[in-house]
Amino acid sequence: MTEHTGSAGTPPRIVVVGAGYAGLAAAKLAAKWTDARVTLVNAHDRFVERVRLHQLAAGQRLRDLPLADLLRGTGVDLVVDRVTAIDPSTREVRLTRGALTYDRLIYALGSHADLDSTPGAREHARTIATREDAERLRADLAHARTVAVVGGGLTGMEAAAELAECHPGLGVTLITSGVLGDALSDRARRHVRDAFDRLGVEVRERTRVTSVHAGGVTPADGASITADTVVWTAGFRVPDLAREAGFAVDDRGRMVVDDTLRSVSHPEVVGIGDAAAVRRPGGAELRMACATGMPAAQQAVRALADRLRGRQPEPFRFRYRQQCISLGRGDGVIQFVDHDDRPSGAVLTGRLAALYKESVVRFTVLFQHYPTLPAG
């Protein structure tokens, strides 16, 4: 029996909030795989290659990708506006300029830099979480002599390397609370360290930043690290909209979903991308990444389409294959991983790794054009 969702004789209404790597693909797939009326809501009219924002901050140009062009011929209606609230009791998405009702909601609002957990970060640090953030950082770098990148994850490593390569006279320091590349294999860590030595990036390990000020940062040991510009990559947060709407969320505010990526508290809602807490059957959490979001979009919409047709959907299945790190334009590390994202002994480095990473990044845009391509 087909699941009833819309008014009698009318197609269901699917609203997708967020047009990042997961949301844009989900909207296009929903229009392709269902007979629903699909509306995509996004705060900006451009698709942002978030995995390239460190390049933009360093002074490079990115492709212009209007959402209207990416949606042309798909039947998806685009609304450029900011979501201010979601009311599940009336199935309404409220915007700054009106509201939309839905029968099914795909929640894909992504994440943003966490600037509120450390005093002074919001007032004195730059991030590369949005295009606007990256452009502001690029403007600051025109007058900076020193920069401190806080956060030793993949984003921090890529940002430090890119800034050092594009601005040879800039003093770049990477500050991490752990060990540089601690999630990588020994061989991969050595290559990252060698690359930073070549680029002149100073690394401060086991250094926890407790505050940010106009002249740099203060670590827990109290010895201030000076910098003209501070780049904050130490953690991400998700919007509070899911929590405020009353959806079941985890302790980080991410929507809790079942094994078909449907909200455990509101079955008419699907959660994908960074703002959803997706776990494997054994409980392991999937990391925030487009490598997770794109295949999740495919399987979530397939499950939604199955339910609309009265079929039992298959559970979400996914495995990681690699972690890709650019170290400037001509160097990188590809750390191959096992099913649970743990590093294996297989590593690709140097120019071949840079080409590999570039092909992966280009695929993320190709996927937005053709979201039925295999993504996981």
Rank of each mutant, 00 (worst) to 15 (best):
residue 316 F to S: 06
residue 313 P to W: 01
residue 304 L to P: 09
residue 319 R to A: 03
residue 312 Q to V: 14
residue 326 S to G: 05
residue 320 Y to M: 10
residue 320 Y to H: 10
residue 312 Q to S: 10
residue 309 R to L: 13
residue 308 L to N: 12
residue 301 V to R: 00
residue 306 D to N: 08
residue 321 R to V: 08
residue 307 R to G: 14
residue 313 P to G: 03
residue 304 L to D: 03
residue 297 A to S: 11
residue 302 R to I: 14
residue 314 E to H: 01
residue 322 Q to R: 07
residue 315 P to S: 08
residue 311 R to G: 10
residue 319 R to C: 00
residue 322 Q to I: 00
residue 303 A to E: 06
residue 299 Q to F: 03
residue 297 A to Y: 08
residue 324 C to L: 15
residue 318 F to P: 01
residue 315 P to I: 00
residue 321 R to E: 05
residue 307 R to E: 15
residue 298 Q to Y: 13
residue 298 Q to F: 12
residue 300 A to V: 13
residue 325 I to H: 06
residue 306 D to G: 06
residue 306 D to T: 05
residue 323 Q to Y: 13
residue 309 R to I: 09
residue 329 R to I: 02
residue 317 R to I: 00
residue 318 F to N: 01
residue 312 Q to F: 04
residue 317 R to G: 08
residue 314 E to V: 01
residue 305 A to L: 07
residue 314 E to G: 01
residue 319 R to H: 09
residue 311 R to M: 09
residue 311 R to S: 06
residue 316 F to W: 07
residue 300 A to R: 08
residue 301 V to Y: 01
residue 323 Q to F: 13
residue 303 A to P: 07
residue 321 R to G: 09
residue 312 Q to A: 09
residue 329 R to D: 14
residue 315 P to D: 03
residue 314 E to A: 05
residue 307 R to C: 11
residue 295 P to V: 07
residue 327 L to K: 14
residue 297 A to G: 10
residue 308 L to P: 09
residue 325 I to G: 05
residue 310 G to N: 11
residue 303 A to T: 13
residue 296 A to E: 04
residue 299 Q to D: 03
residue 301 V to I: 05
residue 323 Q to T: 15
residue 318 F to Y: 10
residue 306 D to V: 00
residue 305 A to T: 08
residue 299 Q to P: 03
residue 299 Q to S: 02
residue 319 R to Y: 03
residue 316 F to I: 04
residue 297 A to R: 02
residue 309 R to A: 09
residue 309 R to W: 10
residue 329 R to A: 14
residue 318 F to G: 02
residue 301 V to H: 00
residue 305 A to P: 06
residue 327 L to Q: 09
residue 302 R to F: 06
residue 302 R to K: 15
residue 314 E to Y: 01
residue 300 A to E: 09
residue 308 L to S: 10
residue 311 R to E: 11
residue 298 Q to C: 04
residue 329 R to E: 11
residue 310 G to P: 11
residue 328 G to T: 15
residue 313 P to M: 02
residue 329 R to N: 14
residue 304 L to E: 04
residue 301 V to L: 02
residue 324 C to D: 11
residue 320 Y to A: 06
residue 319 R to I: 04
residue 306 D to L: 03
residue 315 P to Y: 06
residue 315 P to E: 01
residue 319 R to E: 00
residue 326 S to H: 08
residue 323 Q to G: 08
residue 328 G to E: 05
residue 305 A to C: 05
residue 327 L to I: 03
residue 296 A to R: 00
residue 327 L to F: 13
residue 310 G to T: 06
residue 308 L to R: 10
residue 297 A to E: 05
residue 307 R to N: 08
residue 320 Y to I: 04
residue 297 A to N: 06
residue 313 P to N: 04
residue 323 Q to A: 09
residue 317 R to E: 06
residue 316 F to P: 03
residue 304 L to K: 11
residue 304 L to S: 07
residue 322 Q to S: 15
residue 302 R to H: 14
residue 321 R to Y: 02
residue 309 R to T: 12
